[in-house]
Design a protein around this nucleic acid. Structure first.
Length: 719
DNA sequence: GTTCAACCTCTTTTT
DNA sequence: GAGGTTGAAC
């Protein structure tokens, strides 16, 4: 069928075309890295809508909401605005959407969503309630216990079996952890809270126990598409099956060699099993790579060819030319950072935008040193992955006030906000929450309680006042946030000595919350789809062109002209945690594959030869086993030092800031780039020397400050 | 009994 | 840098 708007035949290759033109029935698209997977999904959405299918009956399940939004956007540009009404989002957000409607059927008429940190606190609370002695039993930390419980749900394994496989050293604790898991379930039911797993579990329960609802939903979502299917877990696969078994219009798209989420229960065997669930599924492979140059593709194919599991396809490209990837050996971490910084400066001087460059790493702390170096050279960057914005203590503090206001049953949040007040610790907080819990908790009840109190407890009046202010029904979400901010900022300034950064975060939150119509929506979104940057953009990141620093997990599905993979040494990448189990190591290999396949034109893999270990001191590091042996044929090897100090590189690089040095009153010289330790402000990097014995300094904790050099005493210069 | 500052350790990846 | 633990101070 030809379209008046879209020239499918011209814009798609044969395999893509075949996938796009599947109208009905089950299908599985195996899409290699850079093979136009998104393109295929976008064109299929456009085509379905073009043939007259109601966009709302198309359900597009993606890994992040942003991915869904982007696809709908592109489809709209291709066809028309109808594509914007496609039902799209993550499994969790769709589950939430459905459960908000039908929750009363499974005894969840209303609920709040708790994040990983909250879950840990619940465990801590339960341990306290049960009077368990942490130390005697050698219990692991709360977060580990939560990991165990969550994994057992996502992998449908008994706690004891799971411990045997993944945490053998904790095997003895199976009965205790099992008990904790039961109590944890009970707590969540009683308090009407759900964690991430509950959203999926409860959706599945709903679909199974209420066939009428299942049929209704199945009829509503007549075309289901699932992106990144290799990273779905058992539970998600079952949900897809339940929603799809009536009409069987289910298309899943994925790449088994890019599965990198088994740690959270994903099972790439879902891909292998799909034809088992839908025996007549059409299987289409996208094997032509449009992203990378020939040499990069050769290396990435080599990386994945060493995998134990043989994968289902082999990628090729028609692109000619391109330069060999480079393996760079640095002496230590700081030389690694230095080399990257200089390379980036030389790339930008060649006219490549920072937007086209990414630095990728296994773990978020791998970039700490580089972040300082980049700041030193005035290179703006945004960091993705690691500690989430919404997980930072100050953001959680602020939100806790709103959560209590919305839901006075929220025992965790009460606890959190009470303990912020001076003179109130765990014991007093317990007194208050116990009293609240002895009847139906409400804000009125709280204010009554406070009236009867004397002494230290008087301070609680401040909270009562805050809730009074919040109760004004004319307030919008942004006003509510602002009120809490006014209340909380002094507390925060007191509590954290790095408050300037955190103040910026609150401003960012203030902006971010503005579009929300209801407090509930805002809080739900903060749990399910929080802002993706790790912290509010600094002065640097506000500039339009900035570098991307990202964990590989957060870089999934993205691409850049130039990619640096750092810390490519055994112990870092693969992570030392993965060295004991073959499956884990194989997942790390796929992670390296994902990292390298992000590169379109230039790929640099770099590692430090020496590292610091808290126990052994300085240690020698080996090149990552995933790339060892590829020197020569697949990649050039260079030493960072030769490039840094050889003739081809200038001794100093213009940082955009004044470079002249300055003699201070005490007779030593400093210049831009020097590192110093300020008695009050901590570690900082000198950005610029100014007149009158002053300097602009970037402090790790406080941001950019101007300091008087006369106040800096001898011996405070670190470098 | 309670709070809180100072010290310690250990840092995987995320909806 | 965030979490837990400890011990001094109220």
């Amino acid at each position: 069928m030809s379209s008046p708007f879209i020239d499918y035949e011209k814009e798609l290759n044969e395999a893509q075309y075949e996938a796009v033109f599947i109208d009905e029935g089950p299908a599985m698209v195996i899409a290699g890295a850079g093979s136009g997977k998104t393109r295929t999904l976008v064109y299929r959405v456009a085509r379905l809508v073009e043939t007259g299918i109601d966009p709302e009956s198309i359900l597009l399940l993606t890994f992040t909401r942003k991915a869904a939004a982007e696809m709908m956007d592109r489809a709209s540009q291709l066809l028309d605005v109808r594509c914007r009404s496609v039902s799209g989002g993550t499994f969790h957000s769709i589950a939430n959407y459905i459960l908000r409607k039908y929750g009363d059927l499974i005894d969840y008429p209303n609920y709040s969503i708790i994040d990983r940190g909250d879950c840990g606190e619940v465990i801590g609370y339960i341990i306290g309630e049960l009077g368990i002695k942490r130390k005697e039993l050698k219990l692991p930390r709360n977060s580990t216990i939560i990991d165990i419980i969550s994994k057992s749900i996502n992998k449908s394994l008994e706690i004891a079996d799971l411990l045997e496989i993944y945490y053998p050293h904790l095997s003895d604790l199976a009965p205790v952890i099992g008990e904790l898991a039961l109590r944890y379930e009970k707590y969540k039911k009683e308090r009407k809270v759900m964690d991430y797993d509950d959203l999926l579990v409860n959706l599945k329960t709903l679909l199974i126990e209420f066939p009428g609802v299942r049929q209704f939903l199945s009829n509503k979502y007549r075309y289901i598409m699932v992106d990144e299917y290799q990273d779905t877990n058992r539970l998600q696969a079952e949900i897809v099956k339940l929603l799809g078994e009536d009409h069987r219009n289910v298309m899943v798209v994925g790449d088994d060699s890019q599965s990198i989420y088994s740690f959270r229960g994903a099972d790439f065997r879902n891909i292998m099993d799909f034809p088992g669930i839908f025996p007549d599924a059409k299987i289409i492979k996208l094997e032509e790579n449009f992203r990378s140059t020939q040499p990069i593709l050769k290396l990435t194919n080599a990386i994945i060819s060493r995998a134990r599991q043989k994968y289902t396809k082999c990628l090729f490209t028609k692109r000619k030319g391109g330069v060999l990837p480079k393996l760079v050996i640095a002496w230590n971490e700081s030389e690694q950072s230095e080399w990257i910084t200089k390379k980036i400066l030389s790339l930008t001087s060649e006219g490549i935008n920072l937007k086209n460059i990414a630095v990728l790493f296994r773990s978020s702390f791998h970039s700490f040193d580089l972040e300082v170096q980049l700041a030193k050279h005035g290179i703006p960057f945004a960091k993705y992955g690691g500690l989430k914005f919404a997980e930072a203590a100050h953001i959680k503090d602020l939100l806790a006030h709103l959560r209590v206001f919305l839901n006075p049953h929220d025992h965790l949040s009460w606890n959190r906000i009470l303990k912020l007040l001076p003179g109130i610790g765990q014991a007093t907080a317990n007194k208050v929450t116990n009293w609240l819990d002895s009847d139906i908790p409400s804000l009125d009840r709280f204010s009554e309680y406070v009236k009867t109190q004397k002494g230290t407890m008087k301070i609680l009046n401040e909270l009562v006042n805050l809730f009074d202010k919040l109760s004004d029904p004319s307030l919008e979400v942004k006003d509510l946030v602002e009120e809490v901010r006014k209340y909380y900022e002094p507390i925060m300034t007191n509590k954290f000595d790095d408050y300037p950064k955190r103040l910026r975060d609150l401003e960012y939150l203030q902006e971010w919350c503005a579009p929300f119509q209801s407090l509930e929506q805002f809080l739900t979104d903060m749990a399910l789809e929080p802002p993706e940057v790790s912290r509010a953009p600094s002065d640097f990141a506000e500039r339009p062109d900035f570098l991307t620093l990202s964990t590989i997990h957060s870089a999934k599905g993205l691409e850049w002209k130039v990619v640096f993979v750092i810390h490519a040494a055994d112990g870092y990448f693969p992570s030392r945690h993965s060295l004991y189990r073959e499956d884990d190591l194989e997942e790390e290999r796929r992670l390296m594959y994902v990292a390298c396949t992000r590169a379109k034109e230039q790929l640099f893999i770099i590692y430090p030869e020496t590292g610091k270990d808290s126990y052994y001191g300085q240690v020698t590091l080996e090149m990552s086993q995933f790339i060892r042996g590829f020197e020569g044929e697949f990649a050039d090897v260079v030493r960072a030092r030769n490039e840094l100090y050889g003739k081809s590189y200038p001794e100093t690089v213009s940082s955009g800031y004044g470079l002249e040095s300055l003699r201070t009153g005490r007779g030593f010289t400093i210049k831009a780039g020097d590192v110093l330790k300020h008695p009050d402000l901590g570690m900082g990097v000198v950005l610029e020397i100014m007149n009158h014995n002053k300097a602009r300094v970037f402090f790790k904790k406080r941001g950019i400050r101007t300091i008087d050099l006369k106040s800096v005493k001898d011996g405070q210069w670190v470098v």
